[in-house]
């Protein structure tokens, strides 16, 4: 992919992230959520399990169907 020049305008959703500070949905390593909580940061940990019995190909297909 050739690099696309930036238009210089800050992206809206990302600007809000910097302005408001992160409110985090943690998906994966539980320790990341624990450490954020220990600092009184807003975080919710998702009790994630590998979808589709751990088959990434089927998981991807299921995600496409659900969106």
């Amino acid at each position: 992919m050739p690099p696309e020049p930036s238009d210089g305008l800050p992206p809206v959703g990302a600007t809000r992230l910097l302005a408001d500070g992160p409110k985090v949905i943690n998906v994966g390593l539980d320790s990341f959520a624990t450490e954020l909580a220990s600092q009184d940061r807003a975080v919710v940990h998702v009790d994630w399990v590998p979808p589709a019995g751990g088959d990434p190909r089927i998981a991807r297909l299921l995600a496409k169907l659900s969106t």
């Binding site: 992230l17 408001d20 992160p22 998906v27 990341f32 807003a42 940990h45 399990v49």
Partner: peptide, 30 residues
């Protein structure tokens, strides 16, 4: 849950977003 509540952690990203109004970042390490 790391929000201080004793409720069970949500099982999906979508339900987690409902549980944290104003959520703006997913930290993903699966």
């Amino acid at each position: 849950s790391a929000t201080g509540s004793a409720t069970a952690s949500p099982r999906t990203l979508r339900s987690a977003v409902s549980a944290l109004p104003g959520a703006n970042l997913a930290l993903i390490s699966v």
